[in-house]
Write a protein that binds this DNA or RNA. Structure first.
Lengths: 330, 330
DNA sequence: TACAATTACGTTAGCGCTAACGTAATTGAC
DNA sequence: GTCAATTACGTTAGCGCTAACGTAATTGTA
């Protein structure tokens, strides 16, 4: 039982394939009676357009791609959910590519998507250099970069003002009397990590505290990364009294390590995470964090990607403002 | 700058497109020197096979689909990660379809995937009836259902022995002296929820306790679903001393509600979740749970889907055994 | 040496669809 | 009534690739 094609429908109604194509795609050039007759027949024959053939002929596939470092990280899974909700509403399907934080895999993923002739791509949490990212993305008709500057007319960008978020957090900590504030920065290749580090630094300076590199430690964005980084930090500066962390996962990991080292949170050390992933309010102590509306970020990115594909004029790239959420940990 | 095609490469080396196709796909029928010459030229021209055209011509797209209720649920995001890791190794791309727990959207998603002419699909957490699921899935060349029985030769199945897991948990609770054990069952449409409920019932009977429907409450698998269900339970039976929950998210939600009601966990009420998602060990009290190797589940499902597509003989459908992890909450 | 089997290619056709360009019939303006 | 503009279709060609079938050259075998 082969799938029903345009031509099958055309034969059934006694029209040409082209006319059926026009009817099915809601395009002008078909009379109202014939149109409805075609649609009825197509329905009863169970006709489903073959997106592959359509893609080959029209060079537009109604298919999009999302490239992220790690779908099992709640930040990215929520981001993806927001994005594909919007895509589904527009009847587009989307490929999800996981890069495991590996720049090489990110390049491969983008190259593979290029072979799919997709209409556009969202790249979030890219670990590529500016030049490499631009090169990898330039082959697409449309692209939206999250937390990376746009480069070119068919490339859009949506960012979170991570710097401001980190500054707020530092200001809050200073206001609470904390003076030895450490920063667990993210992976070196993470732009949002660098922005948060910058915000940390500016926040300290704004509060009249010196920036001291000894209070900064990089980490992998995993559940043990935070603990590892924290161990290095307290080995160097046992008296730290606050930590701002790259994200919530890292923050929670750091809290575990702090407690194991005999320190209380927030008594001895205050901790602020970032993103406000769902479990941030479930851990004990509940996590103070710099909230980002992640799903909205995904929705906005996908909306703009679709608009870019339509060729419409885009408003200037928005910057999402994070918001400090104070809970128990700070 | 158009993308380079097979024919461009063919012209460059002075061979036919067919020969280049054979070389690029590693198929026999090309001499060793010509083959390497073709591959070199293809590389230097930046040739990337057009998967769309390949799909149309060969009716195999090297593309797969995964249909899940909610990618932002850590269970499914980890499952997806396992699956796409395997897919990537086989150079396949995958569509992720989110159904928001809606049977109607699940049908739409499957129908949309059918239009993509994908090589196979994994359906996890289906909320469709047996008949509807079989109908929706029968159009695919290959399918793997997670936690649903297979139906047909081209449909495989991978299941978790949820019933055994729930029985273990109940036995453990009874062993600890708990007698009024409640069950927060999942959504009515969830097969794994029904299996866990069955395990709960059998576990009680095995332990010599009566099954009492008043101790069972359905819930949505969300962060407030557990709390809601728990409120109903304690309204009916204030003296419950244990709860086994549909999954970890629900369990944590229930714990919150228990604490708000003035009960201590595990002092007054012991709680056991299911799945052991990463944050289960991060919440306080840390969560006792019925561990499932979710990533392995995803990897196995994808491996079997790929094998099914190759037409190889499959070993009988495996059943993953969960393992009770005892932490603080029980 | 003769003849089948194998290898290394090329040719043809077509996957299902749409872009681009017909063509015939109808409409409207003056 | 004339001519342009519009509408409602049909025809042709081709997207880039591969399946299926050629064909010529080489190899092996008795």
């Amino acid at each position: 039982m082969r799938n029903c094609t345009l031509e099958d429908v055309a034969n059934a109604v006694g029209a040409s394939a082209m006319t059926v194509s026009r009817a099915v795609n809601g395009r002008p050039g078909v009379g109202p009676e014939l149109r409805s007759h075609i649609l009825e027949t197509a329905g009863s024959l169970g006709y489903r357009p073959n997106r592959i053939a359509r893609g080959l002929a029209s060079n537009r596939t109604s298919t999009l791609g999302i490239v992220i470092p790690d779908i099992s990280n709640p930040f990215f899974s929520i981001l993806v959910k927001g994005a594909i909700d919007v895509a589904r509403a527009a009847d587009k399907n989307v490929f999800i590519m996981n890069t495991d934080e590996e720049p090489a895999l990110e390049k491969t993923a983008l190259a593979s998507l290029a072979g799919e002739a997709i209409d556009g791509v969202i790249v979030a949490g890219s670990r590529l250099s500016k030049a490499a990212l631009e090169a990898a993305v330039s082959g697409f008709d449309a692209a939206v970069l999250i937390n990376r500057p746009s480069a070119g007319p068919h490339i859009d960008s949506v960012s979170v003002d991570d710097k401001a978020g980190a500054m707020d957090a530092v200001a809050y900590l200073i206001g609470k009397g904390r003076r030895r504030i450490a920063c667990i920065a993210g992976p070196k290749a993470s732009v949002s990590g660098r922005r948060r580090l910058l915000g940390y630094r500016h926040g300290l300076e704004a509060g009249g505290l010196p920036f001291n590199p000894v209070l900064v430690e990089r980490c992998t964005p995993t559940l043990d990364g935070g603990a590892l980084a924290l161990s290095s930090l307290i080995a160097r500066v046992p008296s730290i009294d606050a930590v701002i962390a790259y994200n919530d996962v890292v923050a929670i990991s750091a809290i575990q390590a702090l407690m194991e080292s005999g320190r209380s949170v927030p008594g001895d050390v205050a901790v602020i995470g970032s993103d406000d992933v769902p479990f941030a309010s479930l851990v004990r102590p509940t996590l103070s964090t710099i909230r980002v509306d992640i799903a909205a970020l995904g929705r906005i990115a996908m909306s703009r990607l679709l608009a870019l594909g339509e060729g419409g004029e885009l408003s200037p790239s928005p910057e999402i403002s994070p918001e400090l959420i104070v809970r128990e940990s700070a």
